[in-house]
């Protein structure tokens, strides 16, 4: 069933397993994991590394309670420390589940787009290209969905920093290959490309960006809004 061709790099999967990947990139990685059994196996292996390293650790600090203290606490039914803190972030709704399922958006992505793709306010970015931000992060990384009309040729561009793109519907092609639902393309400062959406309806992608895109041609420079997504 799943024969994805393009995956997040192993170092990104390892950082996700270690719990050191920033939230924006984790949204993309975890959404890919929902569609990719192969990368789930890689994350599972990386978690096993974490487990083994912790197991083999020589503890440097004592713990101030005993197991009995904790058991007494449980028996006394003392309200324990809450494990999940509620945050006042209305755009994030983990309960946005299958009863309003937009099959386009696997969890955890759906939690960031509780109203579904059609509820988003799309901004015009250039001919055939619209963009909707779904997460601003303190790290400066931005997460958004990009909607590219079928047949649209994006301006040729480079990248100021690492950028991740994952296809949710439709497909696009650039000099590195063809990208379909679930496929992830990682671009960095050394990569320039000109994605072209294929003729299968709009191509909707999840995009995690840092820094700005760098247009490489004169024509592209006219499309300033796209460069400031």
């Amino acid at each position: 069933m799943s024969n994805l061709l393009h995956h997040p790099s192993e170092d990104a999967l390892l950082a996700y397993a270690a719990g050191t990947l920033d939230e924006p990139t984790s949204v993309l990685v975890a959404t890919h994991l929902a569609l990719c059994p192969q990368c789930r196996a890689t994350v599972q292996a990386a978690e096993a590394i974490g487990g083994e390293l912790m197991d083999a650790m020589r503890p440097t600090v004592p713990v101030s309670v005993t197991a009995d203290d904790l058991l007494l606490m449980i028996a006394g039914n003392k309200p324990s420390i809450e494990t999940t803190k509620v945050r006042s972030d209305i755009r994030f709704d983990p309960a946005a589940n299958s009863n309003m399922a937009d099959p386009l958006l696997p969890q955890p992505l759906r939690a960031y787009v509780p109203g579904g793709v059609e509820s988003l306010k799309w901004q015009w970015m250039g001919p055939g290209v619209r963009y909707a931000r779904i997460l601003n992060d303190k790290s400066g990384a931005k997460v958004g969905l990009m909607r590219i009309a079928s047949g649209t040729r994006m301006p040729h561009h480079g990248h100021e920093d690492e950028e991740f793109t994952m296809v949710l519907s439709g497909s696009y092609r650039d000099s590195f290959g063809i990208y379909r639902r679930g496929d992830v393309e990682t671009a960095n400062t050394e990569i320039q490309h000109q994605p072209v959406a294929e003729d299968q309806g709009d191509c909707i992608c999840l995009v995690v960006t840092r820094g700005e895109l760098k247009p490489t041609g004169l024509f592209a420079r006219v499309l300033q809004p796209l460069m400031r997504m």
Partner: peptide, 15 residues
């Protein structure tokens, strides 16, 4: 920070 995680019960999940 939040930790986004996939949900194996999600209809869009590929088992």
């Amino acid at each position: 920070s939040r930790r986004p995680e996939f949900d194996p019960d999600d209809p869009a999940f590929v088992p």
